[in-house]
Nucleic acid binder design. Sequence first.
DNA 1: TACAATTAGTTAATTAATTGACAAACAATT
DNA 2: AATTGTTTGTCAATTAATTAACTAATTGTA
Lengths: 208, 208
Amino acid sequence: MTNNKVSMAVIRRLPKYHRYLKEMLENGINRISSKELSDVIGFTASQIRQDLNNFGGFGQQGYGYNVEDLYNEIGQILGLVKTYNTIIIGAGNLGQALANYNFASHGFKLEGMFDINPKVTGLRIRDVEIKDMDLLEEEIKNKNIDIAIICTSRDAAQSVADDLAKYGIKAIWNFTPVDLKINNHEVIVENVHLIDSLLTLSYFLKEK
Amino acid sequence: MTNNKVSMAVIRRLPKYHRYLKEMLENGINRISSKELSDVIGFTASQIRQDLNNFGGFGQQGYGYNVEDLYNEIGQILGLVKTYNTIIIGAGNLGQALANYNFASHGFKLEGMFDINPKVTGLRIRDVEIKDMDLLEEEIKNKNIDIAIICTSRDAAQSVADDLAKYGIKAIWNFTPVDLKINNHEVIVENVHLIDSLLTLSYFLKEK
DNA sequence: TACAATTAGTTAATTAATTGACAAACAATT
DNA sequence: AATTGTTTGTCAATTAATTAACTAATTGTA
């Protein structure tokens, strides 16, 4: 099924398929052809078929794809089959905003928040207490944390990431404006650069 | 200088160049070769030279690039030459977090926040009052707003975007989990899908 | 049941993106 | 001043990604 090497371009399109299929499912659409999907999602029908066939033949000639089945298949491919335990490091504005975001509905459970600032430690966000960083190692191990969401200051980020890797975290979702580098290539790092996105927008704004 | 058609792949790398060059500038590095830049930024030297030559010959054989000049050139290309006026629509957790983010330092000035919820209207975030949506049209026109940052609920997003386009906004930075579609192709739309990023991370987590 | 229409999966063709190679320009050194 | 080493800009080669074309399976209909 999952064959050798799927390109990054394909992988980054999968969440979009997942999103659109979920919407269709909610709207009671239970069958879709690559052509119809193309019309709403904006990729060519050919690309959609190519993308999906990286993972298996989920469709049926003359029929198309069953929306629910395809949604579940892609969910499986994306690893949305278990609940992942997450923590947030840095409970400032962004950290708190992300704590309030409903990632839980996608299977990402917030198990803890950490900060060095005594002004926020002890506070609770959605039933999760903000704890001191001293407790980080212990909690990662005890609560079997998979993903750490880094919302610290730029300066603290790399050092926090190094610690997290040492404590055995499996993945890091980084919101600070640095590209975190982890020597241990078992640790997955996903950098979200909001500024990069804004500057891209700015580029096109200038072009007009 | 700016020639015909620069590919999206190149454009999306520009902010990263900008980020790294800024860091070098702060560290007192005033000269860099494509090879050295390659080592820190992770693109090949050849790609760096190709990318930059889409916009002009900023380097010098035998020398490399002057960091400050290149930083400024890329800033110019990205449109970071004027201050853009921005507003945030939807003053929930994410909206408030973004209001506290220092985009201002990059030339994006927050000129207003809007919400329909009377529990938040009237509050002030960093000297910016959260106003009722009724005032949206007037403020966009009076304050010459360039960019609207949408942080509403998913359901409100498209309708808000349609209004914004009608009121003459130039660009939309969208944080809701839908792909906003604006008929007027003069309006630039940049969708930030946090969930897509998280699901990509989840994909790689599962692969291990 | 036969037949026309639909549509996935797959291979081939095309286009786009990246990498490699090299001449020309300049810097640094002796 | 001459020479060696460095490094860009650019063109060519290669690799990757996308699109098109086609076959075979299935649906829907007469």
